[in-house]
């Protein structure tokens, strides 16, 4: 049995927006991430996947439930030293390569920020050397250290962001849609780089994205979210071969494949209806407004996540 690194227990994160309006961004999500694996989290915009990622690293305090990182409660009371230790071990890669780097700082100082905070370099020269090593490890050069972010392309910026996260030698990285703002050829670059870094540095990833094909490529297991709930969770091959939730099915069928012959013969499940407003959600299956296989029970009860096959969990009334 693999060692569990991250244990998310019944995690909820609500936002109050105005009087009596509650936005349930994440509602009662539980799963674990093993040491050394990549857990992919997919879903459409507004499904709460980014909120979940930010709650996991402690940027948002949870409304309910717990995030245990190596047994430590991320949101619990901690001394300064414990907080710093946690911040060293858990890092994040952000979505927008344009706002994730301070435009007034040189790349050298951006990458060295963590090194400085944690006192990891004993001298100026060592600090410089560490930054240059990090630049090399993400495929950039020494000459880039003295440049400002706006001089870089999107892919290069994203790699600077990765180097900044790696600077503190973390064990666990939350990658919040790291490739969705990048061009196709650059997406593959970044994903391959992340895979390579995972092998050489023994990293564990929570990889958040809306692009299923890339998620499948990088992830060992995948969770599918819909309006704050985890609706399906399985090994990535299993999820693609045997999707059980109607939403997962629709999602897989909606992806246009880069293969004209397949596209011509394919029939897709086109979802009708609209996504529910995430404000003051009723207590039923949130997908029922769009589900092609809706039953009366779907409008009355919240489906619970249950194990349909070994390691394959799904929250749907139709799956027995």
């Amino acid at each position: 049995m693999e060692k569990t690194l991250l244990d998310i227990k019944n995690l909820s994160r609500f936002f109050t927006i105005g009087k009596g309006q509650i936005l349930e961004a994440v509602n009662g999500v539980s799963f674990t991430i093993h040491k050394g694996e990549t857990f992919g989290l997919v879903g459409e915009s507004g499904c709460g996947k980014s909120t979940l990622g930010r709650t996991v690293v402690g940027l948002y305090p949870p409304t309910g439930g717990q995030v245990l990182f190596d047994g430590i409660d991320v949101a619990g009371n901690k001394t300064h030293a414990q907080k710093m230790e946690l911040s060293r071990r858990m890092q994040m890669i952000f979505q927008d390569p344009y706002t994730s780097l301070n435009p007034r700082m040189k790349v050298m100082d951006i990458i060295a920020e963590g090194i400085d905070n944690h006192g990891m370099a004993s001298s100026r020269a060592e600090r410089t050397k560490m930054v240059i090593d990090l630049l090399h490890s993400v495929g950039l050069d020494e000459e880039h250290a003295n440049r400002y972010p706006h001089e870089f392309s999107g892919g290069q910026r994203q790699r600077v962001g990765i180097a900044r996260a790696l600077a503190v030698n973390p064990d666990f990285i939350v990658a919040d849609e790291p490739i969705s703002a990048l061009d196709v050829s650059i997406q593959a670059q970044v994903v391959n780089l992340m895979k390579h870094l995972q092998e050489t540095r023994n990293l564990t990833y929570l990889f958040i994205a809306h692009d299923l094909s890339m998620v499948k490529y990088i992830s060992d297991r995948i969770g599918v979210m819909y309006l704050g709930n985890l609706v399906e969770l399985a090994d990535s091959d299993e999820l693609f071969k045997n999707p059980l939730h109607p939403y997962t099915n629709a999602l897989l069928s909606a992806i246009p494949l880069p293969d004209p012959k397949v596209e011509r013969t394919r029939s897709r499940i086109v979802l009708e209806g609209n996504v529910k407003s995430p404000i003051n959600l009723p207590k039923n299956c949130h997908f029922c407004t769009r589900c092609p296989r809706k039953q009366p029970i779907c409008e009355q009860e919240i489906p619970q996540l249950k194990e349909a096959a070994p390691g394959h969990f799904v929250a749907c009334h139709l799956v027995k």
């Binding site: 060293r88 952000f94 979505q95 301070n102 007034r104 700082m105 905070n117 503190v168």
Partner: peptide, 24 residues
């Protein structure tokens, strides 16, 4: 996101103000 990143890297509030907020 760059301010969130600083927070995650353990940058103190004071340093965040000096290095990230004021220059911008």
């Amino acid at each position: 996101e760059f301010v969130l990143a600083a927070q995650l890297l353990g940058t103190s509030t004071w340093k965040t103000i000096i290095r990230h907020l004021i220059p911008n």
